[in-house]
Design a protein around this nucleic acid. Structure first.
Lengths: 198, 198
DNA sequence: CCTGGATGTTAGTCATCATTAACTGATTCG
DNA sequence: CGAATCAGTTAATGATGACTAACATCCAGG
């Protein structure tokens, strides 16, 4: 009955609650614009109680970004390997990114804003995961378009991330499914015409 | 006490220098992550000397964002009215945004990150200019695709902004002209297929 | 019962930082 | 020649904020 949990991860609900609240606050006013007191207040405890769960404000941010990067990458690997052909894999990657961005706009916002505030040991690891995530896309794309050079594919991938991660900026313009469909189509055609280069 | 900026342009080179340095720093570590002392140091003066040029840190940010919003919008209006047909106008808007993003990556970064740190009188004005800029795009697009509803056009516009503003993330992947051409093509086809909805 | 760990609390401490004050050297211009 | 304004300087000042200390509560097991 008791499910064996990974020994390194004990997902205390309190931790998650704190991370969620902190993400929302960081997305709204930036890492340095939010105080420990506020983060605590957002989950009903006050101030220094956070140090029972995290060793400091920076390590809280580090854990948050690490978690996001891991989730994005593992989801991408799963989806890409589950697919048969390259086109299907690309659609799966696009759908995964859209789903994540629509489900967790605050996490997406923090993810590409606050890396510079993560201290060095963890920063490198997060960068590594982000790079692996990009390379997952590049691998799928280079199978589809073998004639396009990898730097172009990388730039195009970043561009599509920017497109898909725009949802926090156009919040509420459209119902979720319409927004998802629109973004998917735009990303698809933006990438489909890479081959027309020169 | 009335801090009304002189409407007649007095482009003190010192002011511009400070604004440029501050933009780079804000882009790297966020508004609250940068001290007055650092901004001064970046232009060779130190600390409180900034108050000879700006009434405070927040008004410095406000002026910076106001300037960006104004430049984007006036450039968009100019380009759109100079064009004959809708397709040409859209290309001009895309080219303008790309040019600005490639010329001033720090400004682009600050522009969509730090609005939340601008105090209320100026915030509203910046939002207004941003809205006008978006509506400039929506107007051009709705002439091209009269069947697509405005909310869809607005969401698509935001998505394309995200795509074009991705350059700070993929810095140095490609030479400038190649990057500009790639982004232009991706934006163009992403918007061209809006009409295929449903 | 009572011990100990997990989780809070409130009250410091120490740094940092935006902002102000008081003062200085130039340059303009009357 | 002044006198004023401009553009700096260094030295307070006052808030805020991350983090630590000392103390409380709850509850599980022996």
């Amino acid at each position: 009955m008791t499910v064996v949990r990974s020994p390194t991860r004990v997902p205390s609900p309190r931790r998650r609650e704190i991370l969620d609240a902190a993400a929302t606050l960081f997305a709204a006013r930036g890492f340095h614009g939010v105080s420990i007191e506020e983060i605590g207040g957002a989950v009903g405890i006050s101030g220094p109680a956070l140090y029972r769960h995290f060793s400091g404000k920076e390590s809280l941010l580090a854990e948050m970004l690490l978690d996001i990067s891991e989730r994005l990458r593992t989801s991408a690997v799963e989806r890409a390997t589950r697919s048969c052909d390259g086109g299907e894999a690309l659609d799966a990657l696009i759908a995964g990114q859209i789903e994540f961005a629509l489900d967790h706009p605050a996490l997406i916002t923090v993810h590409d804003r606050e890396l510079g505030n993560v201290p060095e040991p963890a920063r490198r690891q997060i960068r590594r995961l982000q790079r692996l995530y990009v390379e997952e896309w590049v691998t799928v794309l280079s199978e589809l378009y073998p004639d396009v050079r990898p730097p172009v594919l990388r730039a195009a991938t970043h561009a599509v991330f920017g497109l898909l991660n725009s949802t926090p900026h156009s919040a509420g313009e459209l119902p979720r499914e319409a927004m998802a469909a629109l973004l998917h189509r735009m990303a698809r055609v933006a990438l489909a015409n890479l081959v027309n280069e020169h």
